[in-house]
Design a binder for these strands. Structure first.
Length: 476
RNA sequence: UCCUCCAUAGCUCAGUUGGUUAGAGCAUCUGACUGUUAAUCAGAGGGUCCCUGGUUCAAGUCCAGGUGGGGGAGCCA
């Protein structure tokens, strides 16, 4: 008989049939009840063993974390916590978990402790829920873009391009760092390196995605991205996953619609398919917020917040309007902002938070930023001062999406390269798209882990990726 | 990288103006009980008080440096 997953054994319809189940013991109570979890869902299956006929040698090994298999008849539960339970007729220990040394207990652990046990934290309800939701979100992303007629494009992980400009890069080399070849000037001779030139891990697939969009019409990337920034925050990783759609013949307005449709589709999908996990995460959030002062707690529970985002249109505001709003705000007048607010400066976290959490109270798209604080490839607006950029900000996370209409005019783009000190021979292939059949096009980047944080209510990005990579930490 | 807080039992934490044998809950072990829901009850074991140095008659407690971690900021997704 094949094993049945626990997710399929919780409905009364299966009662009266015999099943094999395999999983890991969460608790063993009363010499009789095993709470078994196999990862297929948040909930456990209660196994009922016969107290008298089960030998003590087996009972002693039914410790938290042990892997077991059991055969038995599914029955309607006599107890209150579950609808069904398995009356066990055969039981084997597959793998013991020494209770003296197994670190995961059937109690609340801190996230910090579990982070150091990242290889075992999957065994907890919280991380089981987070990673099931992560998968659902991942799948929803692919479904959204596929249904919209996009093609996924696998952009390179190792890149020879050094002009992406999105952040510090990790260098990739096969040179012996203890004995690097030197050229005549005494510099490292990268002609000797694997690719015959310097190479790095990608910081963005956008430039390559643009090349694809200018032929396939609409493409998206969904892959790992690497930034060697020395960022130590709850919102940054050195290795993270990013979704980057790129659409030909699309202006900024349709780019904004795409971003809004995309987010809403994904949230709607998660609400529909992950309710049990989201309910657990919602209660977890409520519990952990009990230690916070009232004004730092969410005023709505997790699922209601997500539903509200799905139901309401995103607010739009230009950068210039946002600056005006900020200058009229209470914290500005009372000089509560630490950083100045004036046209031309980049919005600081405190400003974004006021806009999104206090003023708009929901997702907001800020558009048309000053050219000098944005990337070289963004399309210059007619006012000559701003570019067709957009950032989608959400409460609690901040920027979850950043995008723009791309500069499609060769002369403007060349001028920008000069301004940003990007040698044209480094981006000749990128400029070629503007030389041959150039067309307006737009795209954006969405940080996948930030999306997972937003949906799960987790407050540290290290807890929504299995093995976080951060400065000074690459364990596991 | 900057600011700030923290480090005591397997886990979560308490530990008084520096003072004699460092505590609790949970977990673990032993026993009892037995339709339990993080079962309950009784008992037991368990400590390099992060590391190095300093002040002092005396340091878990004070000081300096280091390491690790949290929160915030910058950079960004």
């Amino acid at each position: 008989m094949q094993r049945e997953r626990i997710v399929n054994l919780r409905s009364e319809a299966q009662v009266g049939k015999e099943f094999w189940v395999m999983g890991w013991v969460r608790t063993f109570r009363n010499d009789q009840f095993i709470a078994l979890n196999d990862g297929s869902c948040l909930g456990n299956l209660q196994l009922v063993i016969d107290r008298d006929s089960t030998p003590d040698s087996i009972k002693k090994r039914l410790t938290t974390g042990a892997a077991i298999r059991a055969r038995g008849m599914l029955e309607a539960s006599q107890g209150k916590g579950q609808s069904t339970e398995l009356r066990v007729s055969e039981l084997d220990i597959l793998g013991d978990a020494n209770p003296e040394t197994f670190p995961i207990q059937m109690k609340r652990h801190t996230m910090e402790f579990l982070r150091e046990k990242a290889h075992l934290r999957f065994r907890t309800s919280t991380f089981g829920a987070v990673f099931r939701v992560r998968h659902a979100l991942n799948f929803a992303v692919h479904r959204f873009f596929t249904e919209q007629g996009f093609f996924q494009m696998h952009t390179p992980i190792i890149t020879g391009s050094d002009a992406e400009g999105a952040g510090e890069m990790f260098q990739v080399t096969t040179l012996d760092l203890n004995d690097v070849p030197k050229n005549a000037e005494g510099h490292v001779d990268f002609a000797e390196d694997f690719f015959g030139k310097t190479a790095n891990l990608t910081v963005s697939g956008q430039l390559e995605a643009e090349l694809g969009a200018m032929a396939l019409g609409q493409v998206y990337t969904f892959g790992p991205t690497f930034r060697a920034e020395n960022s130590n925050t709850s919102r940054h990783l050195a290795e993270f996953w990013m979704i980057e759609p790129e659409v030909a013949f699309a202006d900024l307005a349709s780019n904004m619609r795409l971003a809004e449709d995309c987010l809403k589709f994904i949230l709607r999908d998660a609400l529909a398919t992950c309710d049990e996990d989201l309910e657990f995460l919602e209660n977890r959030e409520i519990e952990s917020e009990k230690q916070l002062p009232q004004d730092q707690r969410h005023d709505q529970p997790l699922r209601a917040r997500l539903q509200a985002v799905v139901d309401a249109p995103f607010q739009h505001v230009t950068y210039t309007e946002a600056i005006d709003l900020l200058r009229q705000s209470k914290p500005f007048k009372k000089k509560k902002f630490k950083y100045p607010v004036e046209w031309g400066i980049d919005l600081q976290s405190e400003h974004e938070r006021w806009l999104v959490e206090k003023h708009f109270g929901g997702p907001v798209i800020i558009t048309d930023y000053p050219a000098q604080i944005k990337a070289f490839y963004m399309r210059q607006n007619d006012d000559g001062k701003t570019v067709a950029a957009m950032d989608v900000l959400v409460p609690g996370i901040g920027e979850i999406i950043g995008g723009s209409q791309r500069e499609e005019r060769l002369d403007r783009l060349q001028a920008k390269c000069a301004e940003f000190n990007i040698p044209e021979d480094h981006v000749w292939w990128y400029l070629d798209t503007r030389r041959f059949g150039s067309a307006i096009h737009s795209g954006f980047g969405m940080g996948f882990e930030r999306l997972v944080m937003y949906v799960t209510g987790m407050t540290n990005i290290r807890d929504v990726i299995p093995f976080p990579r951060t400065p000074q930490n690459a364990e596991f």
